[in-house]
Design a binder for these strands. Sequence first.
DNA 1: TATGAATGAGCATTCATTCAT
DNA 2: CATGAATGAATGCTCATTCAT
Lengths: 227, 227, 227, 227
Amino acid sequence: MTELPKRQRNKQAKEKRILEAALKIFADLGYSGATMDAIAEAANLSKPTLYQYFESKEILFTAMMAAKKGDMLVAFEHPRAEALVKQLHSFAWEYADTIMRRDLLSLARLIIGEAQRFPSVGRAYQASGPDQVLKGIIAYLETQRSMGRLEFCDSELAAQDLWGLILSGPRNQALHQPDALPDRATLERYINNGLMVFLKAYSTDVARDLSKLATIIEKQETLETRN
Amino acid sequence: MTELPKRQRNKQAKEKRILEAALKIFADLGYSGATMDAIAEAANLSKPTLYQYFESKEILFTAMMAAKKGDMLVAFEHPRAEALVKQLHSFAWEYADTIMRRDLLSLARLIIGEAQRFPSVGRAYQASGPDQVLKGIIAYLETQRSMGRLEFCDSELAAQDLWGLILSGPRNQALHQPDALPDRATLERYINNGLMVFLKAYSTDVARDLSKLATIIEKQETLETRN
Amino acid sequence: MTELPKRQRNKQAKEKRILEAALKIFADLGYSGATMDAIAEAANLSKPTLYQYFESKEILFTAMMAAKKGDMLVAFEHPRAEALVKQLHSFAWEYADTIMRRDLLSLARLIIGEAQRFPSVGRAYQASGPDQVLKGIIAYLETQRSMGRLEFCDSELAAQDLWGLILSGPRNQALHQPDALPDRATLERYINNGLMVFLKAYSTDVARDLSKLATIIEKQETLETRN
Amino acid sequence: MTELPKRQRNKQAKEKRILEAALKIFADLGYSGATMDAIAEAANLSKPTLYQYFESKEILFTAMMAAKKGDMLVAFEHPRAEALVKQLHSFAWEYADTIMRRDLLSLARLIIGEAQRFPSVGRAYQASGPDQVLKGIIAYLETQRSMGRLEFCDSELAAQDLWGLILSGPRNQALHQPDALPDRATLERYINNGLMVFLKAYSTDVARDLSKLATIIEKQETLETRN
DNA sequence: TATGAATGAGCATTCATTCAT
DNA sequence: CATGAATGAATGCTCATTCAT
């Protein structure tokens, strides 16, 4: 009764270890630069064992990518009660914290670097990562529109604007310069400014919302200087 | 007296051929995936000759990148006389046309994919590509501010906003999905909407500028439906 | 009392299955080309079980060969009453039908192909296959000589002649071209002609025996055209 | 003027060396058992160089086989003036001397052993080796028939009989037991007996031809006992 | 006893790099 | 100066064999 589960658990654990090792090695060296030897060693296994789990390098690569799919997902799961500006601010930071993680940036660089050789990977990532997040933002913005707090005609473009204003700059920088990731102060600058622009363009009550934003920013700064 | 120059010219031509071949091969296959054989063949040379020009794969790679530095530069070189909105619109399209070129996208993917192994390349690209463009935009926006047409406090952020609103969406899509490049209609959607948001946030006379934008867009559409 | 035998029977059955699987795989792929995995799978067993029965690939190979030893045996077990020519004719066909079987040809190719690496196998096969058959033929021919129907001085050579005349041609062809096995009409041509030559050389009453042979051949042809 | 030829000569020499090494290794170990390392070493080259000459193991194998094609050819190129029996006798020995060479026997074992995996090789060998020899014999026998010295209806069968009587026995033995090649006395036994049977079956003047054969044999034996 | 899982040693093939000409 | 030819060192993948259960 305990035998099979044990083996099965062991197997699953090993598979997980392999996928993690693969992520690390592929992300560091790219698809061609990574070697099965290196992955096996990183996963603490022999090469044949590695091959028993994934029958080729390509299969391992795509499996790893598939497993990582969704890691960049960030949803809008905030208390409905919260006010618009506060909610946008929280989301911006949550999203930034995810998207700017060293490991996820490595993964993103890998996906982009191999997009030509593995179009399906790029497609899958786009579909299950950014597109999902976008959908969440769109839904949220539409709710706010129906509540009379925002106005826009194309919700998809509005959502894209939000992302483009608050994170495209830091992220582009991070993609190109792994050793010069933007610090939190920089992120803050982008986020605060981005939210401001977004509200100016889409809020139904710009003055009030900007002042709310100012309050939130001030509070945050007080918190930070304390630490 | 004519012999040396001839040789030199020949040499330079050959070097250029090599760099072009290298770009093509590296962009297609990544650093590790590319082989010196392939590059030599694409440059129509023997391998030893290739090595005479560039003493190792790594040196060739960085040299090629250095040579390509600046290819993505897009400057604000429009008649000063043109009006703000029209100028922004022209710039947006020129920038889009450059940045979304298949070859430059390939190069960008390559840089991002190898950013970890070649940090200097990423750095150099950032410094001589995006940063230069940004500088140009900043200078332009500041001129407009001093002329009373725009208002903002942080010109760098304003410039980043412009880029983030206008092109971050299509470019991200293009980086991840080489085989699904946005068509011109999509670009148009992004550019028009982005300019609108930008003007709403920064113009000193939003109503007038938005109507100008509307006129420009309409004109453009008329032109396009004619063709 | 019944348990052990049951187990033993099971064991023997499994061993037989292994040997059959081994024959198939080895014959198809040669010694080096065959893999223990393939054999285990063909025998419907796990590899460790396979190794419990045969402790190495080499041992399995030789064991399989030893087991197959004698499969090519064809004896002269015809009613003594039958006449010489008829008996030679029957034997020729029986021998042909055995020796030209697809599976036995594969086995023969295997033995020949591995003769250098496994001299004992070649030796064993020769001793227990062809040599035994030859002995049978020799004994028969000597009986016929003592009965005054044949005359020769070296019975071994006479026996070899019989085989060389009737089957060496088709068999050589079959060994070299597995996908172009001689059809029955061709075999018939060889057998009939071979018997004729044999009788011309060794019969004590050539005229009578040749006419008998003609009769037998005619009968056979009638039979065949009917079907 | 001497440069290119030198290189070319060198290249051809190296190719020949490779083919010889390949023959040796393949013949010793079979297709799967042979390794490119072993072949490279036997040819005194590095592996990459080997691959520059033959781009894969399979290609090397078939090229080697193609090159060896025709090595087993034995033609009927005797002075036309010679008498039938003497000519048959000379041919028999020449053929035996070729076919029973250690290296050609190894090659034959290899071809047979790989006939299933490389049907084209078996086919090519058959077409360019045995079939050619057979054609030569057939033509010769037909000439003799037209001169009234032999009689038969099917010249192909007659030719096959000659070969089957003279060499099928020793060759089969040699194919199966590389370490027990028939000695010359055994070959002699087979050849002399085979010729006798052949003449008995096909000669138009059996008595005379047999006595001629006897004379030739006697002469040969005298020669041999002297040495 | 039977098997899922594991591995050291190889094998075909390729690559960056270097001579010899 | 340019190149055909050569190679040491990998690289993806497989195989005979053995544990651990």
